[in-house]
Structures are given as C-alpha cells and as structure tokens.
Design a protein around this nucleic acid. Sequence first.
DNA 1: GTCTATAGTTTGATAGAC
DNA 2: GTCTATCAAACTATAGAC
Lengths: 169, 169
Amino acid sequence: MRNIAEAVNITTPALYNHFKNKQSLYLAAISDTFENKSELLLQALSGQEKPLLRLHRFITQLSQVLHDDPDFHRLMQRELLDGDEERLRYLAQEIFGASFQQMMELLVELNPDCDAHSLAVIIIGMVQKPYELNPLDRFFPDSRQQHNNPAYISGQVMAVLSTYLGDTV
Amino acid sequence: MRNIAEAVNITTPALYNHFKNKQSLYLAAISDTFENKSELLLQALSGQEKPLLRLHRFITQLSQVLHDDPDFHRLMQRELLDGDEERLRYLAQEIFGASFQQMMELLVELNPDCDAHSLAVIIIGMVQKPYELNPLDRFFPDSRQQHNNPAYISGQVMAVLSTYLGDTV
DNA sequence: GTCTATAGTTTGATAGAC
DNA sequence: GTCTATCAAACTATAGAC
C-alpha cells in the first residue's frame, strides 16, 4: 500500500478514501487489467471467415496483448499461482470462458475428431510461453529480438499448427 | 518462517540453526527442488535413438516431472515472476541450460531450417500450459481427468508436432 | 480528499538458558 | 539443537484535524 501510495503521490491513508482495503484495491486492479481483453480475444475468434484465418487472428491478437500489456500477463500468472477460489472462478468464467468456448468450437470445425479442450490449452501454451520465458532470454547466448515480437511468434505457432490442422480443411 | 517451523514441528528460532536467514532457506528449497530434474531431462534428450523418439521421450519426461512434483512447477513459475538476476541466471544456466541446448540441437537435426530457439520454447509451452491452467479446470464444464494425465498430454503434443516435424525426417 | 499521528498485528531475526 | 522471551521493523488500517 505504501508503494502504491507513493507511486500516485499521495499518502497511504489517502488510498483508503478510494478503496475499502488492500483486497478491494487488488480486485480493482485485476478487473481493470482483465476487462476488455476478453472482448478483444472473442472478437478475433468470431466472424464468417475461414476457421484457419480466425485462428490465426486469435493467435496474433493474444500474442499482441501479451506483448503490449506485461501487467496483464504477470497478473494472470500470479492469479494462477495464488488465486483463491472466487478469483479463479472469475478468471475462468468472466474473463476466459466465452473465448475458450468459442476457440473449442473453432477447433472442432477444423478437426471434428480432436480433443478441443486439450488442443486449445496447448495452443495457448505455444503463444504464451515465449513471454513467460522472456526473463531467461538474456542468459541464453542466442537470444534474438525476434523472440519478443508478436508477429514473429504468431507466425511460428501457425507454422507448426497449420500442418496439423491444415490437412483436415 | 513460522509456517515452515510449524510444518517441521520445531519453533521458529530453531530454524536459524539450519539456515542463516530466510533467503538462504529459500535458495536451499529451490536447489533441492530443481537439482536432479535437470539431469533427468538431459538424459531423455540424449542417446543414439532417432531424433523424433528422443523428442518424444523428453516431452513425456517433462510432462511426468510436472505432474509428479507440483512444487517444481510452482517454484519455477514463481521464479519467472519474481526472481532476481542471480536466481534467474541460476535457473537459466545451471538448471535448464544444458537441456535447452541439447533440445535445440535435436530440433535442428529434425529440421535444419527451423528457428530452434523459438520452437523449443513453443514445445515447452505446449507441455507445461496444461499444468499451469489446472487450477481453472474445475470451473470449465467439460473438464476431464485426461487433462491431468502425463501420457495423454505428451501424446497430444506429439500428435501436433509429428505432422510438422515428421515431414522433414 | 488529503494530511499527521498512531493503533494493532505480523514478520524476520537475536539473546540466552538448557 | 531446541526452547522461551523478546526485539525492531514493516505492515494494514483507523482517528481526527484541515
């Protein structure tokens, strides 16, 4: 609370005029960070275009969001590690529920026999892991700037996926 | 420190006979959790077998480790979020350095034109993300036990990868 | 809506007896 | 190597003046 107060140039007690306590401030920070992201990802998945194109758009959008808003990524990882039941339900249902459902339907369109849930999780992992491992990059000899570029990452992911999903289109 | 002391049935000051301070206890916990895991993964990647088989063995081993030792997974994610420079270097160089290098060489064997670094990161994401998202599974309607099964996860990952890498073998 | 002053609690760590 | 007793610092939060 002291750090936050200092960051916004007021004293700690003044924070309590805006938030009831630390918990409510944290929840407000989560909401502010997560809302709108959900809508963005759902829109990328929706539309009348070919499924593979919508998947590409989603992957690019997710990669872009993770790149542009590091707080979004950090808070999500933090919630996955330490979130209580209420906050995890909020994350699962309010933030990612609709997008995840839409993505599974899209994957079934592409391959009716696939396990859409598993495949969706795997794809999210492909896109997100480069950002999770970013802190380690500076300690690897062949670290290139590409590895932090959303367009490059989504291209790499699509290259792997299209051979798997493309056969079924 | 109080929680740890209670968990091992001694008082808090008694902990300081075993560790100089909280920091050194934490570092000892990290070392104890990470060491040996490195060797396990490197062995899975090594050998004279066909590259695709070694990759499969690595993926299965990583999935198994993440499944069997939740503390390993939690501590790694925690370090990626909050680790200082010294701890991140330890993680990158002492724990994952050799395995990551070996994996990149293996991927170049499978596809000389690929970006081995990117591909390695993507593959790790495919394997690990199912475990990261585990806390959310109970809030999704179609949550099946399969999604927590190492053999099933590695099978799903290999199914996606083999069409991409298999063409080049 | 912000401040100063301070309450009440938790935390990491030490002193010293056994 | 463990205990009891205790400290100093940091923390969340409140009281009350302006």
